[in-house]
């Protein structure tokens, strides 16, 4: 299990990286953490002619606050997200999600840009991005493009990105202190890719849900928010019954398939269990952002 031959470029700045990428077109691949790419290269499922390593570019690994947004550089590691105090304070759900990825050794290397660009339907971070209403910025020699989370993911391993683009930044709106949140994953083995990942963000005013965001990953080929269920929650008073109803309704939007890990029916059942639990957790969490 050894890689086929390739050339490796190690640009020091984003401009060089972009022109290299532009020049080599679909024969080149970006490498950041390598935690998804290298296994496929080792198995020769991917045989790129060139790799462009972004790890030496200063200024792509950061977490900062600007106005009411948290800005995250494309080469920021999962471990950075998991341990960042800014994220803990302003969008803790993202830190939680990052902490659910694989194991520490994976999180040291794996990056937010790599995970989102890779768009594995079972991946953890897309669920967080959608729930948090984040944006993705991509850069190419032609300039910068910005996508809402909803516009970014197309399906299994496909996104809105062009081949000559680099995912340079992720933007997460600051979550108000009054919000509640929850993030959870179901795995067969500790640290394994999730069978199911659920993210919830909720705001309640005067005992009524005024904002709800619910994302379920790992089931459908395209991870999406369940907008219908969100709407069903809005305007209602939080209660166990409501959350149960909402969880059951969520299942209508899921099209699970059976595979070696679990049957479709079980997955669907677990969507109900996890969504209900997540909604309850978010509700109990209300007002705890940043604490």
């Amino acid at each position: 299990m050894k890689p086929s031959s390739f050339e490796m470029y190690t640009p020091n700045n984003i401009e060089d990286a972009l022109s290299l990428l532009d020049k080599h077109g679909d024969e080149a691949k970006i490498i950041t953490g390598g935690q998804s790419l290298v296994p496929t290269i080792n198995m020769r499922l991917a045989t790129p002619k060139s790799l462009i390593d972004l790890n030496r570019i200063d200024g792509l690994r950061y977490i900062k606050k600007e106005d009411n947004k948290i800005l995250i550089g494309g080469v920021t590691r999962h471990h950075d997200l998991e341990t960042s105090s800014l994220i803990k304070e302003h969008c803790p759900l993202l830190g939680l999600a990052a902490g659910c990825i694989g194991h520490l050794a994976i999180r040291y290397r794996g990056t937010i840009g790599g995970s989102l660009a890779h768009a594995d339907p079972a991946a953890t971070l897309p669920v967080a991005l959608l729930t948090l209403d984040g944006k993705v910025k991509t850069t190419s020699v032609n300039g910068v493009r910005e996508f809402d989370a909803e516009e970014f993911f197309y399906g299994i391993f496909t996104t809105a990105m062009e081949e000559n683009e680099i995912l340079t930044e992720v933007e997460i709106p600051i979550v108000p202190k009054e919000a509640g949140y929850s993030f959870s994953t179901l795995t067969r083995i500790h640290g394994d890719f999730p069978l199911l990942a659920v993210g919830v963000l909720m705001e309640v005013e005067e005992e009524k849900i005024v904002k709800a965001r619910l994302t379920v990953g790992g089931i459908n080929p395209l991870t999406e928010r369940i907008v219908d269920v969100e709407e069903m929650l809005i305007g209602k008073k939080p209660s166990d019954e409501l959350f149960y109803e909402a969880a059951q309704s969520s299942k209508d939007f899921m099209e699970p398939e059976s595979d070696i890990s679990a049957s479709a029916e079980y997955r669907l059942h677990m969507v109900g269990v996890y969504v209900e639990e997540a909604l309850k957790n978010a509700w109990q969490n209300i007002g705890k952002v940043g604490n």
Binding site: M1, P3, M8, G34, Q35, V38, P39, N42, M43, L51, H79, H103, L104, A105, I106, Y108, R109
Partner: peptide, 22 residues
């Protein structure tokens, strides 16, 4: 392919999978 951890070692103070790094 990154799963077993047998190849784990420290690079710049972080224990990473050496089979997933060139």
């Amino acid at each position: 392919h990154g799963v077993c951890g047998a190849c784990t070692l420290f690079v710049n103070g972080e224990a990473i999978r050496s089979c997933l790094m060139f």
